[in-house]
Design a binder for these strands. Structure first.
Length: 885
RNA sequence: GGGCGGUUAGCUCAGCUGGGAGAGCGUCUGGUUUACACCCAGAAGGUCGGGGGUUCGAUUCCCUCACCGCCCACCA
């Protein structure tokens, strides 16, 4: 056994252990061919990205589940890869070109895309290296990229199939146009920002009635150049006489109708509203109803185009606003100005104001695809954890809009659509097939032009759970690992990603892509602020890894990951869990020093001493707690149970009690305690491994001759031992432990209720020496009267078990208020009475027995029997207590 | 306008099915005893946001108010 250093140094361990794991193929799901599959697909990080705290949390949780299920014997696959991140990546490379004094358009499409690939090869691996540093045990041999050959094939097939099924179509409608990035974006990529703006009221002269005006309000004066009508509410008394008349649009001189439409709200503004169908989503609908002209006044850069009066042509939109206002004022047509709080759409990548712009784009019929995806969650085929996110999902899915999937970018999957000379479109898997289709259509070969647009990045992400497993080919991986077990992600991409994977998975695979969706919260700084570069409060997970080790960071994130709560990170907490690593390390050192070595064939159920029986029982408890917590996705619960068991139960109590045994002369007790201590430490190492893989692997391998590394050690063999250990424990250990405590006290001349300072003052020489030697333990013993024991150190659910033994414990401990105990017992009995009545009533209800599922009824019967048994025990205890008193 | 979440010790937060008010950090006291000062022992500190209800019993369930945060929609 190698001698352990005094403190644990993660920097000497983590990278080395990780490389060993990866090189040995430990991350591949090949451990057990007959095993059940356990599958997680990673939310593919942007290839341009670097690891932030959200990634660290997200991937730690995935790794915990993967390692946990792998150790439990599953063929665990954590499918990894990265996303091509269309706009983000294109922007990065464009900025690089700018620095070289070049422009994307100078290079041309092919050369540019080549540059992006080059960039990806050189710099795209940052995030995957960082994930390794964190300890992520994903199967790198299966790493995919959304633009690699296989995934691109999947994208093409999905697009073509959906097109031929009528679920993708080309349409001319208003889209969100980003005038900086020069592309359309989807509704989700539009971010509404609060702006303190103004409302300007314009007077529009009525045609043919000098001096008569109708006043309209607007927050965007420049759009008046594209007005083609003025709407008033059909019932609005004020304007009845004007309906059907015309106004002469100032500056432009266009004659446009005043018409009735319920869209105009008499309560708002002047009650009359200018209609600009070309540049406002609502106005577009109103204009369509009223048959208004649609005039587009902007070019792609949101500068005024040839449809605007000459002096405005080429003018930038906000400049045009000023000029319009000045001109209107000069004309005496600016009625008034008011402050107006409003939200203005901005591009989430570019940050500029989004312009509604009329153009041809490709759309996915999301409403049709959403139906089965809604049903799957309604029926529980896919469940969200925490469940309340299902509301968010339903809300969005039930009101889903067509998804604009075409982007005017160069980096991405180019849309497989070709146009003929007359604009007819041919959507096929390849140019050859498109040519063939065109020939069939035209009766001759024609020149085709491919649509230059690419697909929204999220289009390929939507296929991730099956495309990464080989689809459209029928691979063994696809058969074994789809549907995946659980998706772990943040709430911010429920719409972008989760919902779309549900739609695509159900449509193309006929099954949900995952059975569970675990939604974790955002990682914030310690004050609860969202981390952002501009606030300067960003914590780099890699800095924390450097400083405290990956295990400490992982444990911190895990312990903070309470359901439905934001995770607040603070360095002091990471430091605390670094200390926890040291604590474990030193417990192992202590065990080594005392020759506690793993004993082959050790049977935890066969130990004899009270101390050892107790710790074995507690170990079984913590294993059950950890397993239960993980299976309910209560990561913090698992971390908390292991933390307090390791530190408080094992180190503070068990090892302290073990010291007198080790220094004593009872060789048999010594041997058993050594073996037990070694076994418990092994259990701690095993149980902690999913959360803290590095230190546990290091301890596992340095603390004895092992058949293999911990990561590939299978858990069930240990789990069986634990179940056995728990089952064979007698429940009188509390009493026996108290007896032992009393014996130790007696040996040391320590009166049970003594206070330490008093003892020090009054103790005789022998006692003083004992006190000096064993002070910490004695302080603990002094604290450990039966009340403490009752409250703190019992196995779970033990209140009632101990009450059963109350009459035995009470006289021994002698420190308990008998009256209080009596009333407590009486209360417990009353509670059981109530329970019994409730169950009896329920089981006496014929309708319930007849209609409820059998197992439910059976459970109720069991509960009744339990309650009756507990009540009998309580009664007995009460009787004995009364007798004793 | 619709929806979701939060309000527990000085700070950051746990508290799963109603019965003990908790952890870490910080503060104070005492300790370097051969696992650990990244430690040990001990202490102080909370009317679990306000009010009402259900219950033998509410931090926990229901209603309501206040404040904070987030998401969606709308915005002439």
């Amino acid at each position: 056994m190698a001698e352990l250093e005094k403190t644990y140094h993660p920097e000497n361990v983590e990278t080395r252990r990780y490389e060993e794991w990866e090189a040995s193929g430990a991350f591949k799901p090949t451990g057990n061919d007959n095993a059940d599959a356990f599958t997680i697909v990673i939310p593919p990080p942007n290839v341009t990205g670097s690891l932030h705290m959200g990634h660290a949390l997200n991937n730690t949780l995935q790794d915990i589940l993967t390692r946990y299920h792998r150790m439990r014997g599953a063929a665990a696959l954590w499918q990894t890869g990265t996303d091509h991140a269309g706009i983000a990546t294109q922007m990065v490379v464009e900025r690089m070109l700018e620095a070289e004094g070049a422009k994307r358009t100078d290079l041309g499409r092919d050369k540019f895309v080549e540059r992006v690939w080059e960039w990806k090869e050189h710099s795209g691996g940052t995030i995957t290296a960082q994930l390794r540093r964190l300890g992520a045990s994903c199967d790198w041999s299966r790493e995919r990229f959304t633009m690699d050959e296989g995934l691109s094939k999947a994208v093409l097939k999905v697009f073509v199939d959906l097109y031929k099924q009528g679920l993708i179509y080309r349409d001319k409608r208003l889209v969100n146009w980003d005038p900086k990035l020069l592309t359309a974006i989807s509704d989700l990529e539009v971010e509404q920002r609060e702006i303190r703006g103004k409302m300007w009221y314009f007077k529009y002269p009525i045609d043919g009635q000098d001096g008569q005006f109708i006043t309209v309000g607007t927050t965007r004066p420049e759009t008046m150049l594209g007005d083609t009508g003025v709407a008033v509410h059909p019932d609005d008394e004020r304007y009845q006489g004007l309906i059907g008349q015309f106004v002469v649009l100032p500056i432009v001189g266009r004659r446009i109708p005043i018409f009735a439409d319920a869209y105009a709200d008499p309560e708002k503004g002047s009650g009359a509203v200018k209609i600009t169908p070309g540049h406002d989503f609502n106005d577009f609908e109103v204009g369509k109803r009223a048959g208004l002209d649609i005039i587009n006044i902007f070019d792609a850069n949101a500068h005024l185009n040839e449809n605007a009066p000459e002096k405005y042509q080429g003018m930038e939109r906000f400049k045009a606003r000023e000029v319009v206002l000045a001109e209107m004022e000069e004309l005496g047509l600016l009625d008034r100005v008011e402050d107006n709080d409003m939200t203005v759409p901005h591009g989430d990548r570019s940050g500029v104001v989004i312009e509604p712009w009329l153009m041809d784009q490709w759309f996915v019929d999301a409403a049709t695809l959403a139906k089965p995806a809604i049903e799957a969650v309604e029926s529980g085929k896919t469940k969200f954890v925490p469940k309340n996110w299902e509301n968010t999902y339903f809300e969005w899915m039930r009101n889903i809009q067509p998804w604009c999937v075409s982007r005017q970018l160069w980096w991405g999957h180019q849309i497989p659509a070709w146009f003929g000379p007359d604009g007819a479109v041919f959507v096929e898997l390849s140019e050859e097939e498109a040519q063939a289709a065109a020939k069939a259509h035209y009766g001759k070969d024609v020149a085709l032009t491919r649509d230059p647009d690419v697909l929204d990045t999220w289009f390929s992400s939507a296929l991730w759970p099956f495309s990464t497993l080989g689809w459209p080919d029928k691979t063994p991986e696809l058969a074994k690992h789809y549907p995946t077990d659980v998706l772990i992600t943040g709430f911010d991409i429920i719409f972008f990603w989760v919902a779309r994977m549900m739609m695509m998975g159900l449509h193309f695979m006929g099954e949900v892509p995952f059975h569970k969706v675990y939604i974790h919260a955002l990682v914030r700084d310690e004050k609860g602020q969202k981390m952002s570069k501009s606030k300067g409060n960003v914590m780099d997970p890699l800095d924390l890894v450097e400083k405290f080790g990956a295990d400490a960071l992982r444990f911190t994130l895990t312990a903070s990951a309470a359901q439905g709560r934001d995770v607040k990170m603070s360095e002091s907490r990471v430091e605390g869990y670094r200390n926890f690593c040291t604590k474990i390390w030193n417990a192992a050192r202590f065990c080594d020093m005392n020759e506690c070595r793993p004993v082959g064939g050790f049977d935890p159920a066969a130990v004899n001493s009270t101390l050892n029986r107790w710790i074995v029982c507690k170990t079984a408890d913590v294993e059950a707690a950890m397993r239960g917590a993980l299976e309910a996705y209560r990561f913090n619960g698992a971390a908390g149970a292991l933390y307090s068991f390791t530190w408080n139960t094992f180190c503070d109590w068990y090892l302290e009690f073990a010291k007198p045994v080790f220094s004593g002369s009872d060789e048999a007790a010594k041997a058993e305690t050594r073996a037990t201590a070694a076994w418990v430490l092994d259990q701690i190492v095993i149980l902690l491994h999913p959360i803290m893989p590095f230190i546990t692997e290091e301890l596992w391998q340095t603390r004895g001759n092992r058949a293999g590394p911990l990561i590939t050690t299978r858990w069930p063999e240990y789990g069986a031992g634990l179940a056995n250990a728990a089952a064979n424990q007698e429940m009188d250990w509390v009493v026996r432990l108290i007896s032992q405590v009393r014996a130790v006290r007696a040996e040391m001349n320590v009166p049970p209720a003594a206070k330490i300072p008093l003892l020090l003052k009054d103790a005789g020489e022998g006692a003083r020496a004992a006190l000096e030697t064993h002070k910490d333990l004695i302080v603990r013993l002094a604290r450990l009267d039966s009340a403490e024991l009752l409250a703190g150190t019992m196995p779970q659910g033990a209140v009632q078990d101990v009450l059963d033994e109350a009459t035995l414990i009470l006289p021994i401990a002698g420190a308990i208020d008998l009256g209080a105990e009596k009333s407590r017992l009486e209360k417990e009995i009353a509670k059981q009475d109530a329970e019994i009545t409730r169950f009896e009533k329920k089981l006496g209800n014929d309708k319930f027995v007849a209609n409820a599922p059998e197992d439910v009824v059976e459970t109720e019967r069991e509960k009744l029997a339990d309650a009756q048994a507990v009540r009998a025990k309580l009664k007995d205890a009460l009787r004995r207590l009364t007798a004793a008193a």
